[in-house]
Design a protein around this nucleic acid. Structure first.
Length: 125
RNA sequence: CCAGACGGCCGGACGGUCGCUGUUCGCCGCUUCUCCCGCGAGGGACGGCGGCGGGUGGAGGAAAGUCCGGGCUCCACGGGAACGCGGUGCCGGGUAACGCCCGGCGAGGGCGACCUCAGGGAAAGUGCCACAGAAACAUACCGCCGGCCUGCGCCCGCGAGGGCGUGCCGGCAAGGGUGAAAUGGUGCGGUAAGAGCGCACCGCGCCCCCGGCGACGGAGGCGGCAGGGCAAACCCCAUCGGGAGCAAGACCAAAUAGGGGCGACACGCCGGCGGCAACGCCGGCAGGCGGGUUCCAGCGCCGUCGCCCGGGUCGGUCGCGCGAGGCGCUCGGCAACGGGCGCCCCAGAGGAAUGACCGUCCCUGGCCGCGAGGCCAGGACAGAACCCGGCUUAUAGGCCGUCUGGCAAA
RNA sequence: GACCCCGUAGCUCAACUGGAUAGAGCAUCAGCCUUCUAAGCUGGUGGUUGCAGGUUCAAGUCCUGCCGGGGUCG
């Protein structure tokens, strides 16, 4: 069983701004990932979710944010490097994109930002 | 069967794997205050927090727009009235209340079922009615008629006389023309020409009677028209309204700064003010502290430490889910709605949960196939933020009931 | 949560107290000028006045309900 990192939440506006300004970002078709090393995070990883009004009405925004949250446990907590703050930004296609594509979007985003963690934890030091 | 009118209802269904959250039960761990037992170490009770497991609940008919009406909370206010401002406006009911709903009246539209609209006052006053037109609320452009008449001019005629134009005085408002609108409409009589001048019918106003709680409807008589439109122009009349809003409001309460109290230690000099005094306040000097060190000058600060109190910010808790509550039956009422009885508890988040993914089924469309069927798309409008009653707006598709007009059959 | 303001030609703005073909500048089109272009001159096109109802003889203007922008306060 892979070791899932404990997941914290980003809630306040300064935390989002810090990740946006000091971190790296990668834009996939279904989502945008921003990542930033964080001393406050410690051994866990912290995640923030964002869906702006550009994405759609309240219903569409809620759906996009819920799908992004559903991505956190099976992908980000399992494969994301600990000690980082992540921000997942919803795009216009987030609510309608096929689920498999959305998973691949997040995986390639983690790889491109150098935050990919191997699936098998026993081989890691 | 076709076309249509009105009213009501639903707002995909089932299953699986992972999650979030409220509540409840059990077990485990930690634990402040309070209470109980114990000399004590400690144990227990009620709670609180965390974890695990089980049960159970978890977006809408519009949750939306914020257009009205309330509950609730705080503020203001002795009561009432007047003024101002804002809303509402046929009548009668319903309701906690409403600008909402129901039933009825009136006007307009539709073959019809039905739909749409709305108070009174223009004789309380002010104002506006462009252009056109003579004139828009007071009048006469063209016109019609009479008189002066033997006026004047022209023409016709042998003549008597006649015609046309024109001047003055007077009568009329029928016709023409303008306009959205021109002083009731149609017909007959009447007249020099006309006119409600007279008459009949219709309209209008007043009076009276009948029906109705009423808006109003109907019948009769009288008056002869008593005098245009706009009050979603100002206004008058009637009636309603104190202001703010859950970020209301209440409670708990870090760090820092500042305020107050108590205790310990420290506490010089001069001047002024108050006071009997203890003493307090102010100003100056001295003193102490502040730059890596020393001196001088300048600047800033002024008892020090400890404990406590109150206000208050971040933060947290409550407000916050039993209510003008749902569902069923029944009674009264044409209905809106109300009464009675029984059953039920039905979201409470906090950057913000109520879901993510997969499968089967159900609709709709396209393609393939002779066919059974298969494949691929799509399934509306839209997300609670203190809560109710309405209104308005958005909405794929479907279901039910009543009624109207046709066609066909019996 | 409580409010306010604005929507007029492709763009920027007018239209008095309701009054009749909704104006102006830039842009655009055509012509003149020039060897050509620009500038200049002349003329033209271009509007469901955000939408739907209502009041009125008449609505960009008044009333009601929507739609879309922008802004204020706590």
């Amino acid at each position: 069983m892979p070791m899932d990192a404990p997941v914290g939440r980003l809630k306040r506006r300064p935390e989002f701004l810090r990740v946006a300004q000091r971190g790296r970002r990668f834009a996939a078709p279904g989502l945008v990932l921003q990542a930033c090393t964080s001393a406050e995070a410690g051994g866990e990883i912290r995640v923030g979710l964002t869906a702006s009004r550009k994405v759609g009405g309240a219903v569409v925004r809620n759906r996009a944010r819920r799908r992004l949250r559903a991505l956190v446990r099976p992908v980000l907590a399992r494969h994301g490097a600990a000690g980082n703050d992540y921000v997942l930004v919803a795009r216009q296609d987030t609510a309608t994109r096929p689920w498999k594509s959305l998973v691949e979007d997040l995986e390639t985003a983690l790889r491109r930002l150098g935050r990919w963690r191997a699936k098998d934890p026993e081989k890691a030091p």
